[in-house]
Design a protein around this nucleic acid. Structure first.
Lengths: 306, 306
DNA sequence: CAAAGGCATAACCGTAGCCTATGCATCCAT
DNA sequence: ATGGATGCATAGGCTACGGTTATGCCTTTG
């Protein structure tokens, strides 16, 4: 289901947010590096598309109307997530002139790292960060080899030679579409049924899938059903689960919006321990310095909030 | 700080997500209503901008690379929030041919309603919803007058003639920039100090501001300091607080991303009860039917998740 | 071995969005 | 009062981006 074109271009909404913050169209235009007429035209067109006045133009500036408040409130999360996306891409892109090299497992890279990088840029504006992603073993190997300054891994194992510090907790959750039988309290599955039910799943080798299978084995289930559908990306798994293809297992971080909206329902599985520690790792010999130390501090600081 | 242009246009990222879901560039193109060459060109350009291959083109379709996975993972939340924005705008825009009329206080309209509307559209695709926003008194009046079918209010008061049902809990939180003295555990303020400290605040009459002042008065504080800065929008308050202008009070929903990132720090205020019930209201005479009943069911369903 | 499915390239075209220049209204200071 | 400053709107002209159709090449499949 593609996004309607009305909201694919966030520029006008970003501009609206700047007007809210700065109090005038002209100042917002300057902040965005465009001319005042261009900003004025964009905002006018935005109002036409929304069908409701968003700004009160006074002679001394412009303020948001009530509708403008609402639109700005809805636009802000979209812009913030786009900023996360930008931070991630910047870290993928960075190749040369890099001051900080990090490696992260998929869960950390996807859900935690972008905002840490934004916070890092606020602290050290000139630091360029390069990110490589892989499974926890690969990350640990890169740290040990000195290819990266700091790594983030999931899971309990840790090769010798590394120091570690907990930065977050991840939890796998079993989710189904609202109509599924497991969605009702009465029909919650136990470990044996889970092991015997085909799920929508990632490829073998994916950290999430491994963790799920380990948790079932730790529970005494050795016969695991083959996946119902193997797809390449978290995105596709969510789409399949929402579409009612079948149950899926995903990181709790991945499904927060769907649980909020009720498009997916979480199925508690008290039999299984699905929690995982997410940890920062670095060579045990050395003390972290510079941007690496700052990033670790940021990660630890955000930990205290959760 | 405007968004870099690389991520202002979500079209290409949305297309990437469709490729992840559908397995081929051509099918993704069709889903978006554009030609296959157009999609191919967009994705190629996206790869150029990111600087890393995102897709493995096979003769039988296309799959995401590891980097593509990451980008898709970062892009999905942005696209989802844009979908929320779209749902909100659609509800603001709807004027004629409307089947369901609702009114909501700002907090509900901003943070909860868009996803409910998306879920409602999944349930009743043909329903057109019109939203009006106001403070809780206005919402209640509109429901009583029959101007809307369903309302959402915050706060404890409820005029006679309305039935109500809890759909969520809101909580105000006091936040400061990480460097502020209150950020450290040792220096947390008590009610008296809070009452005497100027805050970054919304105009008088805003529900958030009223609730904060009531909570302080309930605590025996009658002398409240004048605001440090009065700004018109939540956006501007967040920007001011992050910039270190001063402490601010906001809905917990509003600052989740900032707390996650560590750009704002929550200051616990055990003295004050800052929780508020968010409730759906409708005329006590009648039983809800049709889309209004569906929307209430969706709101109640999402309540069980939090 | 033919056919089909899927991606890339080429050539053409329409329009959306930007800029500069200018006008008009309002507020403020002298 | 009045001139200056501030801020938004309008007009005209230009560029460039993104779309379409047509076509070619490669690989898998029956």
């Amino acid at each position: 289901m593609p996004l309607p074109s009305r909201v694919t271009d966030l520029t006008s909404f970003d501009l609206l947010l700047s007007v809210a913050e700065l109090g005038s169209i002209g100042r917002a235009a300057k902040a965005h590096g465009i001319s005042q007429p261009a900003a004025s035209a964009r905002l006018r067109q935005l109002e036409r598309q929304v069908g409701v006045p968003l700004l009160e133009r006074a002679t001394r500036g412009a303020r948001l109307t009530t509708a403008g408040e609402l639109v700005a409130g809805w636009a802000l999360p979209a812009v913030e997530r786009a900023a996360d996306l930008e931070a991630g891409i910047a870290a993928l892109r960075a190749d040369r002139h890099t001051h900080l090299r990090i490696a992260a497992s998929l869960t950390v890279a996807e859900y935690l790292l972008p905002r840490w990088l934004i916070a890092l840029r606020a602290a050290d504006p000139d630091t360029v960060t390069a990110l490589s992603s892989g499974n926890s073993h690969e990350v640990a190997a890169q740290v040990l080899a000195g290819d990266v300054d700091l790594g983030f891994v999931e899971g309990p194992e840790l090769p010798p030679g590394l120091r570690a510090s907990d930065v977050a907790t991840d939890e796998l959750v079993l989710v189904v579409a609202p109509g599924h039988r497991w969605a009702s309290r009465r029909r919650r599955p136990r470990a044996a049924e889970l092991a015997g039910t085909p799920l929508v799943s990632r490829e073998p080798g994916s950290g999430t899938r491994q963790a799920w299978e380990w948790a079932l084995r730790a529970c005494g289930e050795t016969e695991l059903a083959a996946p119902l559908l193997e797809v390449s990306s978290t995105t596709a798994i969510k789409a399949a689960a929402i579409g009612g293809i079948g149950p899926a297992v995903l990181s709790a971080h991945a499904v927060v919006p769907e649980l909020d909206a009720g498009t997916l329902v979480r199925v508690p599985v008290p039999d299984l321990d699905l929690r995982r520690r997410l940890r920062a790792v670095w060579p045990s010999g050395q003390t972290l310095r510079g941007p690496a130390a700052d990033l670790l501090a940021i990660a630890l600081r955000s930990r205290t909030e959760g």
